[in-house]
Design a protein around this nucleic acid. Structure first.
Lengths: 219, 219, 219, 219
DNA sequence: AATGAATGAGATTTCATTCAT
DNA sequence: CATGAATGAAATCTCATTCAT
């Protein structure tokens, strides 16, 4: 009855230790889930395989995520939040729309982030996951709309500042830009890496902002 | 191209009648498969549902397609061929690269073709189907590479003619262009249709060829 | 297109043959399910075991019953209907309430019917099945209330005719009577069969109608 | 009966304190187990839920009861013993068989005891628990037979005293009486409470002892 | 003693594929 | 040819039980 009264520190320390371990475990699971998911897609990813890669038992996965779709949601949320956060930071800078959007492109194409965004984009456009989510939840979460809004805001600000072509509707600009974030979907079509992320940003940025016509031929 | 045209009467007539019926049946199956596949994705599409929509028994589907993945392959081939054919026709015209590519965009965005290309693109980037195909077949078929080559040829010709910016590597141009073909992946993110296909072509074409910067701000 | 037009008989014959086979299969499954269920109870009954006893594969069971609970519902319905039907027939006779109710007791205690009613009663009072049913359906079905109503009607008619003690509320009479239908719940408590069904009816009838006091001691 | 009464002070005091705490804990667990078991039945009751209701960890339950079935056994034993004790006390009075048995009915129908007996009766006739017990132990314990014997003794004494109808075999009387102890199994069939326990005793007693025939129609 | 994370056997259910009719 | 019943592998999820802390 008179417990944990005199040493709240200890208790907190202990519970936060456990909490940390829990977090680590959950992160490990998410990590492996991410790997398997991007290799195999939602349906061909089995809880068994995720567990095996983490080196734990199947049931343990369920200790952290109540169902397979929840695991995916957690992953999606993590990536969406991380992406959203970055986009929001970028949006707050005083840079031009072009610089801002190129920042986002760079962030997307780089390293580990790239993989994450890859999966994030894949999940975003996956019919099966979408159906599952709509059925069991009631939508894809608000981060998606938030993300769209942040980029829209950048685009609109660019238009207002006279930087971007105001005659093209923002939704079209938005979709087109989002499409640029996952050009790797077409990787298998082409093959290995011939271009560095940085180069890719320069090229894609140039395409998106200046078009692909040769400068001399521009009317 | 020149099949079953000059064959002797009776037998052929009968067999070609049967053949035609067979074809019709197969087409019907493909049609329904297409519908279900784009609604539910590969894994959530069941042979049972396809058969039910066609109004035939499950076994009958197997009479036409030896397995579920073969059904998808047939669909994919059909769409890829149709797309390839169109692209090849376009490539042979004397138009500029921009006009050619805008033709392809228009073809993709329009009507029923649009749906087909949608599914085609979805299958192209679907992890599960890709893995399945690599496992059971050994790749995605040659149409994909053929298609890439046709578009590459258009792009390279454009560069050679001084129409397109030669400083951007063709693979990047190619990927970016392919990315423009399935902007609907991001539909749920945005919502209903606010733009007609024709407008979309104009807007997307302008973005791809001239960029999104405001004309006045172009150096 | 011009099928089954000239020989509707054949078609019907064929389809009714299939239908009959289907029925037989379903009945066989129900039969085995009944056996396993009364041996092990709902939760310890596995579809695997039912299938094994029938000599078919697990999936085949699901071809006939969409889920385990549906299997139980079918069984329950069958028994409830059979019981209800009998009770209704009995209710329509011109016999006295006592004779009617003793008919029902006899019917319950006899042979195969006994087992069925046993299971029926067991399911009726099984917490797990009840919860399952309330959750997945929305109640126990109407047969149960119908059955209660039929017996209530008999009791009330008996009261009206001056045969039964009108000072005891019908619900109490009803519950008590229903309690008499599954005296075997207490079998393990007591042991093997020492009394024949017919004797049991006589004894139980005497208890229910005249009480257990010795005739001489009745005030 | 005469335990821990004369032991030396210190150690015993401490150990009996611990012992008492242990007992209290065990009782609390039993209490919650009882609640969950009667709500959900044996299989749908999870150790997790019991622990949660007590407010302890799952492992702690296992410190008190080596397995789930042991928990049920303990509960069953407790109720059976309590019931048995009461029945034995009643049996020792000088009352008539009717008064004795009505005492037992009253005890069963009243308040908290009622719930306990309810569960007790439910467990008694639960197929899954029975099978589990037979498998892991080897029977249902002796209290059950003891209880049967006590009631049998009352019945036989009643017969010997000329109070009860000696022409009805005692086993039948016994079963029938036991059947009266859990009329609530049929509650869902009827609905809410319209009768008080005391009234119920009077009605059920009258039925059991005098029958349901109208007094005037008794020959 | 108490905890609760981890385990893994086992249950339900789905569905591509086969094959006798 | 067409059918659709049958199959059984495989996947998700649950939960009694164990055990390191």
């Amino acid at each position: 009855m008179v417990q944990n009264q005199v040493e709240p520190a200890a208790t907190t320390a202990r519970s936060s230790l456990k909490e940390r371990q829990r977090q680590e475990r959950a992160d490990l699971i998410l990590q492996m889930a991410e790997a398997v998911l991007s290799e195999k897609g939602y349906h061909d990813t089995t809880i068994d395989e995720i567990a095996a890669r983490v080196g734990i038992a199947k049931g343990t996965v369920y200790l952290h995520f109540p169902s397979k779709i929840d695991l995916v949601v957690a992953l999606f949320d993590r990536d969406a939040n991380s992406f959203l956060e970055f986009a929001q930071q970028v949006a707050q800078t005083g840079d031009s729309a072009r610089v801002k959007l190129e920042h986002i492109l760079r962030h997307t194409y780089e390293g580990m982030r790239g993989k994450r965004t890859q999966l994030f984009m894949a999940l975003l456009s996956s019919t099966s996951v979408r159906n599952e989510l709509i059925e069991k939840r009631g939508g894809m979460g608000e981060q998606v709309t938030s993300l769209a809004r942040v980029i829209e805001a950048i685009l609109e600000a660019g238009k207002a500042a006279g930087q971007l072509d105001a005659t093209i509707p923002t939704p079209v600009l938005l979709r087109t830009f989002l499409g640029l974030l996952s050009p790797r979907s077409f990787e298998p079509l082409i093959g290995g890496e011939q271009v560095s992320p940085e180069e890719l940003v320069r090229y894609v940025g140039r395409i998106y902002f200046q078009g692909i016509l040769s400068p001399t031929s521009q009317s």
